[in-house]
Design a protein around this nucleic acid. Structure first.
Length: 374
DNA sequence: CATGCGTGGCC
DNA sequence: TGGCCAAGCAT
């Protein structure tokens, strides 16, 4: 890692901000510095690309124009507005924080990093972003861009996958950030990280700060940032039960915590759970597995079903850490069946269209439609 | 501190 | 295709 002199720091600030003034992106949330606008955009932008966020942001602001509107929103309406963005706890934390702001803060925003971090869903990065952009606090906002940009500029060898590395970057950037224009400085770094100093195929030769990019100047840019690799998603196999009656589907509501919390999907049976019912799981044939699925549904929910494969390849969906393979089964259920022990209910397509559904469920419906049509 | 948590895009 | 990345946070 190298260190800059005070002269170099001042030259870097001017070069960066001159470039930002001339070439910074015109984004919907940059029309003003309203903390509500900054906040919503920053939460949406977590682990999500700008191009994806723009239409969501526009619709969100039209639906929930103020903190008060968000605080009072129907949760189902809120989730529908977030549908497809992923990481749905972001939306739930958003409303939790809106209620905190209205009820505990009487609508007055905390303006410091520590004050902002007390709000649900606001961590060190988002607190720094709001504090600097909305309240002109000279604090860093260290996201993936800042990690990547400064790792290359200064040849910082610390592993950015390690949580403690954040402290190092915050200290380094705190000395470099322009105290006169901290919000613009932080946003300029992000624009730089998403244009010239990208993760893959950077274009540092044409970057406005190439003279400050020590990794590039030394011809070792591809070594930075240093980042430990993550384990690949674990494959998991499920049966998805398609149970229809009177133009309705029997849908299951997922638990209130964990993956796709509270979302509605077809009843899903983990293949592993079904195999546990056999004393010799390694010898179970595909036909016998279907019987085990029927047994498991009977044991778990007191429902008698008969299942038949719908055909086609399993529907696959990859999450950050899991890869699901869902085999659809056409299931028939006694229409007088007692659903008291089943965590779900009958829903029509119209009703399903009104609520937020995860992408996985959308894929499952698409598969059914393609089979039905064929 | 390590792990869990969605989705889309790119090569 | 699989692997990696994209304006992270809660627990």
């Amino acid at each position: 890692m190298i260190e800059w002199s005070q002269t170099q720091i001042k030259a870097f600030r001017k070069t960066l901000l001159d470039w930002y003034d001339a070439h910074g992106r015109d984004l919907p949330w940059r029309r003003d510095h309203d903390p509500y606008h900054v906040w919503i955009s920053e939460i949406m932008l977590q682990q999500t690309q700008v191009q994806t966020v723009i239409p969501y942001y526009e619709r969100f602001m039209a639906t929930f124009p103020t903190v008060e509107a968000l605080a009072e929103a129907d949760e189902a309406v809120l989730m529908k507005a977030w549908e497809g963005l992923g990481y749905y706890s972001r939306a739930r934390n958003l409303q939790r924080a809106a209620k905190q702001l209205v009820e505990d803060y009487h609508g007055v925003w905390p303006q410091t990093v520590d004050g902002l971090k007390a709000l649900s869903g606001i961590g060190p990065y988002t607190a720094g972003a709001i504090a600097s952009i909305a309240f002109d606090q000279p604090v860093p906002a260290v996201d993936g861009n800042a990690f990547r940009v400064f790792a290359r500029l200064l040849k910082i060898d610390a592993d950015i996958a390690q949580p403690k590395t954040r402290q190092l970057f915050e200290q380094v950037i705190s000395r470099i950030i322009d105290p006169q224009r901290p919000g613009d400085f932080n946003q300029a770094i992000m624009d730089l990280g998403s244009s010239y100093m990208t993760a893959k195929q950077p274009d540092s030769a044409n970057s406005p700060v190439k003279a400050f990019n020590q990794a590039y100047l030394d011809g070792v840019e591809e070594r930075y940032p240093v980042k430990a690799k993550k384990p690949r998603p674990v494959k998991q196999y499920f049966y998805g039960l398609v149970i229809q009656h009177d133009q309705q589907f029997l849908m299951q509501q997922r638990p209130s915590n964990g993956l796709l919390a509270n979302f509605w999907t077809f009843p899903l049976v983990a293949q592993e759970e079904a195999l546990k019912l056999s004393e010799t799981p390694e010898l179970v044939t595909p036909e016998e597995q279907l019987q085990l699925v029927e047994q498991l549904v009977q044991q778990s929910y007191g429902l008698t079903v008969h299942v038949v494969p719908m055909g086609g390849r399993p529907v696959t969906h990859t999450f950050t850490h899991r890869q699901w393979h869902v085999t659809l089964l056409n299931a028939t259920l006694d229409k007088d069946a007692d659903l008291s022990y089943f965590p779900g209910k009958w829903l029509s397509r119209d009703e399903l269209a009104q609520i937020a559904l995860p992408k996985l469920q959308e894929k499952l419906f698409n598969r059914i439609d393609s089979i039905t049509k064929a």
